[in-house]
Nucleic acid binder design. Structure first.
Lengths: 229, 229
DNA sequence: AATTTAAGTGTTAACTTTACACTTCAAATT
DNA sequence: AATTTGAAGTGTAAAGTTAACACTTAAATT
């Protein structure tokens, strides 16, 4: 019982953030080109270090904000990575978070400043350290999470068409979905509001816009309803 | 970009381990009565600190081993907890792991030495720090995991009856299952070996013993098969 | 030989999921 | 004004899965 406080080794605690966005067709992640050592010039996740006065969720918020300018974003802790030589400079444990953002809302200037760029998952470059494995885990968690909880909406603008929603799920799940079955399923859950407004950008007829009804979902959930795609 | 390595604050990295066992009827967790400060005399999870020469998985193995004497145990990282004042002595981040062990195999002497005791989930005492929330998360993860992967067998002896397996799932899922449906489902997956041996302890007729066939499962999984309870 | 007690076994109905193709609408063109 | 164009929008039936349910069998005990 004596490997207690005093005898222990403190470590640097880093955070890395997998930022997901969806640009009409594809799921993307936001990566930065490092302009600092180590691995200067290579692509990586945005990261930072935990500060004394914050917990991990707060640190993740701060790090996400410094790159995107966004606040109140969906962020979830993923996993902690601890391979001894994962960071060549110093022993560092990294806690990975993933974020879901509306890609239309990020701050372009900040992104340029960081040399950051959106990459579709399939075209992303190899990343430094263990960041590739973090991304792999994040995608797998995203698949699970979006099919069990209505968090996919975080990746869309507040008003969206059924087509957009379907494309989003297709790109997360990496499979084609049947249009009628998809719409029937979503409608059966009765958690969207159909607006009187149409998106006219994709067809002459236009397609109706919908909104996710957070309150209705909360009430249904309290009554035992389960979201499922 | 300059909140880099040098400016950062190192922290103590702890690990806490939720150890699950199953004693014929009930899911249990192994807790220790602390004989050291802070919170001496109170119940808590077994824990320890990360050392320089090990990664988190190795540290969790070591900590599990010091209490149970067991090696090669099913261990999975759960979540990292970081509330600023979660540990009153010093800023500490804790990474929680959960373990599934065959309750018959742990080392009684070690357990006595640590003042440790098995508690059924419903009768466990309140725990120190944020350990109660860790246990809650662990149970919820265990439910998910055991219904998607054949890890429940880790909680049973190598040879078990269908009844035992059903009781195990009932106690993890907190619901009664239909005997015929359960057995039909398990048999349909075709991942158990029925032995010529019976357990005679529970009835005159005796009930056949089964073993989980790891290799067969691996082969089926590679062919796209999914375990599901 | 009769009794006891848990083990072992299949079928049907309810529900969920999948497969599938034509009509409607509004703008653009003639 | 009529026709064309292209995506939006819509329902049903078959297949598959899950859930409900009760009697027979085996071996020990009396």
């Amino acid at each position: 019982m004596l490997d207690e406080y005093s005898a222990s080794d403190k470590v640097l605690l880093a955070l890395d953030c997998i930022i997901f966005g969806f640009d009409k067709e594809e799921l993307k992640i936001l990566l930065i080109k490092r302009d600092f050592e180590p691995e200067k010039g290579k692509w990586s996740l945005i990261g930072g270090f935990l500060k004394k006065e914050e917990n991990l969720d707060e640190a993740a918020d701060r790090i996400l904000n410094k790159l995107t300018g966004l606040k109140n974003v969906y962020l979830e802790q993923l996993h902690s990575y601890s391979k001894i030589d994962r960071d060549p400079v110093e022993r560092t444990i990294s806690v990975a978070y993933y974020a879901l953002i509306n890609i239309e809302e990020h701050n372009e200037k900040l992104i340029d400043q960081y040399g950051a760029k959106w990459f579709s998952i399939s075209e992303a470059p190899g990343l430094i350290f263990d960041h590739d494995i973090m991304v792999k885990h994040a995608i797998s968690r995203l698949r699970y999470k979006t099919s069990k909880e209505p968090v996919g909406f975080e990746l869309l603008p507040p008003k969206f068409t059924m087509k957009q929603l379907q494309k989003l799920y297709e790109s997360i799940l990496c499979e084609k979905l049947d249009k009628r079955n998809f719409i029937n399923k979503i409608n059966a859950m009765d958690i969207l509001v159909k607006l009187d407004e149409k998106d006219m950008s994709s067809s002459r007829k236009g397609s109706f816009l919908y909104q996710f009804d957070h309150d209705k979902y909360k009430r249904k959930k309290a009554d035992g309803f389960d979201f499922k795609v």
